[in-house]
Amino acid sequence: MNHDKDNIYASAQDQVADFEFDQKVANVFPDMIKRSVPGYSHIIANIGVLAEQYAQPNSQVYDLGCSLGAATIAMRQRIHAPGVKIIAVDNSQAMLDRSRQFLDLEDSPTVVETLCADITQLRLEQCSFAVLNFTLQFIEPNLRSATIAQIFDGMLPGGALILSEKLRFDNNEQDRLLTEHHHDFKRANGYSDLEISQKRQAIERVLLPETSQEHISRLHQAGFRTISQWFQSFNFASFIAIK
């Protein structure tokens, strides 16, 4: 399936609106994410590897904030345990409609259900593996602890959660340096300074990053027994938490 090039912020805008996962973002999302998030393809591939290890027979696997379903597809290709169903959840119908187009190209016995829902209100059932891949950062900070606790409560013993997030750093110099490295990454992928600036204006009001320690503390408070940061590239990281 062909993907459109992300040029949403290529022209100067009088007023930059808050970023949202609407139809125009859905149309260019594969290009946008590849050129914006360092290590994204590595994270997706290894979500598949980890899902293969942790998915339990006759359980459910959740992709929470699935966007176009990249993590769902990676898990579907690797999970071999019998009776597993993947539930791909997003609150953007435009993203889900586009994800279904990608999912329908896949030939796999693993059932995928797409669900338009607010994950802060979602009760997980018989969950052996869940993914929050750059999703929690878009949730209101005062709802994040309850959301993680709800995921933990719906998990089977031995289940695992993958949490991938953009990070901020308490050390201002470190934060500034890694942010600039991220901008260099985007420039190397063809984004102009205007695009970088306007995208930052659009997203900084809706994407509210936290430190790695804040994420680890929240996971511990929810009850996860083993937590590891398994990936970092510049100011993007991924954690695995096991119940």
Rank of each mutant, 00 (worst) to 15 (best):
I151K: 15
K166H: 10
Q232W: 07
T226I: 02
F169R: 06
S36M: 11
R100N: 13
L68S: 04
R225M: 06
Q232T: 14
F138M: 09
A71T: 01
L124F: 12
T211I: 09
E125V: 12
Y191E: 00
Q198D: 10
G190W: 02
P57Q: 05
D90S: 04
Q101S: 15
Q93R: 10
L194Y: 13
N171S: 10
R123F: 12
L64T: 08
A26W: 07
Q229V: 00
E113I: 00
V206F: 02
Y54I: 03
R187G: 00
R144N: 10
L64S: 12
L208C: 06
F102G: 13
S164F: 00
K34T: 15
F169Q: 07
I119S: 08
N7A: 14
R35D: 04
K199Y: 06
G48E: 07
G65W: 03
E52T: 13
L161N: 06
S192D: 04
T179N: 14
T72K: 02
I8W: 09
S11Y: 12
A51S: 11
N172Q: 14
R123T: 13
A12H: 15
D175M: 03
S99R: 05
C127N: 03
F236M: 04
H42L: 06
N91C: 13
L50I: 08
Q23V: 02
R200I: 00
A55Q: 00
I79P: 04
A12K: 10
I86V: 07
M32Y: 11
